[in-house]
Computed example of a mutant assay.
Amino acid sequence: MWAGVRILFLWKVTRIVSVTKTNWDDYLLQVGFFRRLAHLFPGLFLYYTNTNFNLETSAAYAFIYFSASLYLIVTSFLVLQALISGIDKIYQASEYAKKAPITGFIQVARLLVTIMMIFLIISLLIGQSPIYLLSGLTAIAAVLLLIFKDTILGFVAGIQIAANRMFNEGDWIEIAKYGVDGDIKEIGLTVVKVQNWDKTIATIPTYALTTEPVKNWRGMTKTGGRRIKRSINIDMKSVVFASKEDLSRWSKYNFLEKYLHRKSLELAEDEKKTESEKRDLVNARKLTNLGTFRAYVDNYLKEHPFVHKDFTCMVRQLKPSEVGLPIEIYCFTTTTEWIAYENIQSDIFDHILSVMPSFGLRVYQRVSDKSKSE
């Protein structure tokens, strides 16, 4: 009889779910929530109708009461687990899943339901109220704190992560302490799974995301630009004033035509103001090959089709050292895709290194053909 009731119930529910426009009931049907819910009917029937059999003092009454109670506890546990799975599926299908993961909370809910079931079964076996068992937990609270230390820390960290939207599945993170560099695959209650770029899977404690220094590349991905910050060391012996022949040759470069025209006007105006010093090679303003080279690279980057126009773009000198004068390229690409980014960066520096001899500049390196010949 009960098999027929369950079949009729599931058939009716399936028909209702199929005609509704919402999706949440479809997910509940997929995880078996309604199927497990139908199993509660025979247990409830036996539990509430047992007294009508006038068996209160017999062993049969105790057996039926115990069996019905145990059946209801286990079935309710399965129903709640299915409900939690359905909630997880509903949330993962929503747009909020991309903003805040709830995997840790789902695991906490499963753990609490499991603990509740265990307490109810033990109380049923010993014939005591569940409150009686809970009162005894105070004596072993310290032991439980040690056992569930990672669980408690992970739960607290999960609240911080979800509330502040610090991390999400799919984020690219780096944690130097654990050697982690890759995408987050799952944020669980106690551990976080990260797939490194070498395709290995690293697991770290969830609370490490809030207690350790973590670099999250999500901002870079969202803005659509990835930074290039790399320098070339110039041999300072190759830095000289530009001659008229150099200026004439460089003025034919597309990226320098406007710059040199503007500078020539500035220098001419400066000579008028400092007539007495125009023959002083030390104090007179003159262009250098390095300064013109920086202007060339700056204009080259601003005209590059794959350099982001809305972000910072500059070519600057850094502090000189025993390995030369660093010229740093600071800009952002128009893509964040790894391979495309590396190709763009390589093409830019290929061009810069190739054009440097045209300005009479040399790259500093500790061992080179030039140093050997000298």
Results as ranks from 00 to 15, higher is better:
residue 12 K to W: 09
residue 205 P to S: 06
residue 41 F to W: 14
residue 170 G to V: 06
residue 127 G to Y: 05
residue 166 M to E: 02
residue 52 N to Q: 11
residue 373 S to G: 00
residue 256 L to E: 00
residue 14 T to Y: 09
residue 67 S to H: 02
residue 235 D to P: 03
residue 361 L to Q: 12
residue 244 K to N: 15
residue 338 W to Q: 11
residue 303 E to W: 04
residue 47 Y to C: 04
residue 276 S to Y: 07
residue 371 S to F: 11
residue 80 L to Q: 12
residue 42 P to G: 03
residue 282 V to N: 11
residue 73 I to R: 05
residue 348 I to Y: 08
residue 187 I to H: 05
residue 41 F to I: 14
residue 348 I to Q: 07
residue 89 K to P: 01
residue 323 V to T: 10
residue 159 I to P: 03
residue 191 V to Q: 10
residue 208 A to Q: 01
residue 346 S to H: 07
residue 258 K to C: 01
residue 195 Q to N: 02
residue 275 E to R: 07
residue 284 A to I: 13
residue 179 G to M: 01
residue 349 F to M: 10
residue 4 G to H: 14
residue 117 M to Y: 05
residue 142 A to G: 11
residue 293 F to S: 10
residue 275 E to Q: 02
residue 247 L to Q: 09
residue 55 L to N: 04
residue 214 V to K: 02
residue 313 C to G: 11
residue 369 D to F: 11
residue 369 D to Q: 11
residue 164 N to I: 00
residue 374 E to I: 10
residue 344 I to T: 12
residue 20 T to G: 02
residue 127 G to W: 08
residue 35 R to M: 08
residue 171 D to M: 03
residue 44 L to A: 11
residue 9 F to G: 01
residue 224 G to E: 10
residue 16 I to W: 03
residue 159 I to Y: 06
residue 140 I to Y: 08
residue 109 A to I: 04
residue 79 V to E: 05
residue 318 L to Q: 13
residue 105 F to S: 12
residue 319 K to V: 10
residue 270 D to I: 00
residue 261 H to K: 13
residue 169 E to H: 03
residue 205 P to K: 04
residue 62 A to H: 14
residue 250 W to E: 01
residue 73 I to S: 03
residue 21 K to W: 12
residue 189 L to R: 13
residue 227 R to Y: 01
residue 328 E to H: 00
residue 361 L to D: 09
residue 119 F to D: 06
residue 212 E to Q: 14
residue 300 Y to I: 06
residue 200 T to D: 01
residue 138 T to F: 13
residue 124 L to M: 09
residue 355 V to F: 09
residue 5 V to P: 01
residue 184 I to M: 01
residue 369 D to M: 10
residue 110 R to M: 14
residue 256 L to W: 00
